[in-house]
Amino acid sequence: MDDLEFERLLKTTRLKLDDIERAAIQKDIEEVIGYFEKIGEIDTEGEEKAYHPIKVDARLREDSVSKFADVDMLKRQTKLHDGYIIGPKL
């Protein structure tokens, strides 16, 4: 993986690494991607894709109003302004 691609990934993932961590992680990622390449040796022609290990039925629950947990407990853990959570500027 070249530096440009690594930079793109850091930007996409909103991660910042110092020089030491960056060198270590970039090296590890090279190693892991090399390991993942093994999958190319497997002939999967015509094989279906398993997104889950078991068959998951589409089930719907009753469309009814229910109270989600203790919202006040969640609110006490964040900074609020007029009941809204304060976040960064857009």
């Binding site: 909103r14 991660l15 992680i25 900074k79 500027k89 857009l90």
Partner: peptide, 26 residues
């Protein structure tokens, strides 16, 4: 929260451990 949107998230996500960062990037 006075920081700009992207800077805020990039700084805030600095507390992930190395293995988590590696897996997020991969």
């Amino acid at each position: 929260t006075n920081k700009r949107y992207n800077n805020f998230f990039t700084e805030a996500r600095g507390d992930f451990g190395s293995e988590a960062k590696r897996r997020i990037i991969l």
